[in-house]
């Protein structure tokens, strides 16, 4: 860990409210990285063993759909956490990720963070809460987009 890694982590929305000690413990497993625009970060189907806290830039989550090409499902930016599939039952990326703009981020090896959480349950609880909040807000955003709010409303035939 470098001091600048700890400072970058402390300044990230994901770490808001974490104690100095927890930030230092987590930062010990973080690597500050830069990803040039256009570089693929991970591909659908690969082993999901890392996650990132995006500091700047933009990442596109994508999926290759036969006959339709590569479709962007969602974009993530500063303050976002990238990579949730390592938490799932099948540790495989469900979508791909590519840097749409140059990205700076903190990269974590999920196994190391899981081991840290097993060792420090309080930190584990706090990280779990944050990851859950991330998953909930992504789920809500996906539901809102499914609602297709900008479509022309169809007048209902009657009744509330």
């Amino acid at each position: 860990m470098t001091e600048s890694t700890a400072a970058a982590l402390a300044g990230h929305t994901f770490a808001t409210g974490l104690s100095r000690q927890h930030i230092d413990r987590l930062a010990a497993h973080a690597t500050a990285i830069e990803i040039p625009a256009g570089q693929r970060i991970f591909a659908e189907g690969q082993l999901a063993a890392r996650f990132w806290l995006v500091i700047s830039g933009r990442v596109a989550l994508d999926l290759q759909i036969p006959g339709r090409g590569r479709l962007i499902v969602e974009t993530l930016g500063p303050g976002d956490e990238l990579g949730l599939s390592w938490l799932g039952p099948i540790r495989q990326w469900q979508f791909g990720a590519v840097a749409q703009l140059p990205v700076t981020a903190l990269e974590f090896q999920s196994a190391a963070v899981e081991a840290l959480c097993d060792y420090d349950h309080e930190l584990g609880y706090k990280l779990t809460r944050r990851l859950l909040a991330t998953a909930v807000s992504r789920l809500q955003a996906a539901r809102i987009r499914i609602l297709d709010l900008y479509a022309v409303p169809v007048r209902s035939a009657g009744g509330p």
């Binding site: 929305t13 933009r58 596109a60 090409g69 590569r70 479709l71 962007i72 499902v73 969602e74 974009t75 930016g77 500063p78 303050g79 749409q100 955003a141 809102i144 987009r145 297709d148 709010l149 900008y150």
Partner: peptide
Amino acid sequence: VTVDRADAGWHGHVSVVTQLVGP
């Protein structure tokens, strides 16, 4: 600018507009 559904030529945000507020 963000869209709910991107097409192949789109290089901008894909998200709910509320997700632009944070950054």
